[in-house]
Simulated scan of single mutants.
Amino acid sequence: MMPPQGFGRRYMKAFLKGFFVAVPVTVTFLDQVACVARVEGASMQPSLNPGGSQSSDVVLLNHWKVRNYEVQRGDIVSLISPKNPEQKIIKRVIALEGDIIKTIGHKNRYVKVPRGHMWVEGDHHGHSFDSNAFGPVSLGLLHAHATHILWPPERWQRLESILPPERAPVQMEEK
């Protein structure tokens, strides 16, 4: 029979080995593949947070899907706020580079999205700080693609990439 002191030492050694493997793997996964995030605010209602301030949806953010800046019109994405780099915002992609979009309250009535940029908006117009306030967003600010609602359980679902017909670009550039 092994003395208790030897068992404790072996247990601690195994724990530390596992810890020093698990932490870098977990950090890499969360940084490069996917993570979860709580959505705050009303800007994406009714798609996200339909209950208003009573509840917050938790979404799965897929980093892997946007690693080559490949987004489509209608995708719900997380990005670094162009006005506050400490903050991440979640919006729907309305237009891609080369598209001409009819704006809602932007200083210009029509905007041609420049190369390397996208036009993003919240689903709840008038309650969203989006491209209508700050203009086209650089693809370099893209953080992740929101793919599923994970919480609350009764709202568990895949998020569809749907472009509202009334927000379709006036002219789309073919790829």
Rank of each mutant, 00 (worst) to 15 (best):
P4M: 06
P4V: 09
G6F: 12
G8P: 02
R9D: 02
Y11R: 10
A14L: 12
F20N: 12
V25E: 05
T26L: 06
T28C: 11
T28P: 05
T28E: 07
L30I: 07
L30M: 09
D31R: 10
V33C: 05
A34I: 01
R38I: 10
E40C: 07
A42D: 13
S43G: 10
S43L: 02
N49F: 09
G51M: 09
G52I: 00
Q54K: 12
D57A: 00
V58F: 09
W64P: 05
K65V: 00
R67N: 04
N68E: 10
N68T: 12
N68C: 06
Y69M: 15
V71F: 03
G74R: 02
D75P: 06
I76D: 02
V77S: 03
S78H: 00
S78M: 06
L79M: 02
N84C: 02
Q87D: 13
K88L: 10
K91P: 01
I94H: 03
L96Y: 09
L96V: 11
E97I: 05
I100H: 05
I100G: 03
I104F: 03
I104P: 12
G105W: 02
R109F: 14
Y110A: 10
V111N: 11
K112N: 13
R115H: 14
H117G: 08
V120P: 02
E121M: 10
E121D: 07
D123I: 07
H124M: 10
S131W: 01
G135L: 03
V137D: 05
S138H: 08
L142H: 14
A144Y: 00
H148V: 03
I149E: 04
L150S: 09
E154L: 01
W156Y: 13
R158C: 07
E160S: 09
E160H: 02
I162H: 12
R167S: 10
V170R: 15
V170E: 14
Q171E: 15
